[in-house]
């Protein structure tokens, strides 16, 4: 699936998007998997309460299942307007 990062999450991880092969069942599982990869991921995901997640461009939650999802995006709380 495609995994996208925005704002400081993108800066901390060092890339805007990547294709991730995963069998993670939920968003939280995917976060655990990514965090185990490298320090920069662990740093970005250290406090998920400071993050938001969108599944196929809809805001979702960290306990949401990933079945059928094509695009996951992680970002800090939005600051539009």
């Amino acid at each position: 699936m495609d995994v996208l990062y925005f704002a400081w999450v993108r800066e901390r991880i060092g890339l805007p998007r990547e294709v991730v092969e995963t069998t993670a069942r939920t968003v939280a599982d995917l976060v655990t998997e990514l965090s185990a990869r490298e320090e920069r991921y662990a740093a970005a995901f250290a406090d998920v309460s400071a993050l938001r997640v969108a599944l196929d461009q809809e805001l979702s939650s960290f306990d949401a299942p990933l079945a059928g999802v094509r695009e996951v995006a992680f970002f800090p709380p939005m600051t539009g307007g």
Partner: peptide, 21 residues
């Protein structure tokens, strides 16, 4: 303000900061 996916970053003469919600 909090449901449209925009993020603001302020660049000042001495540092850069992501605007926090």
């Amino acid at each position: 303000k909090s449901r449209a996916p925009f993020w603001k970053k302020e660049i000042t003469s001495d540092d850069t900061n992501w605007v926090a919600a």
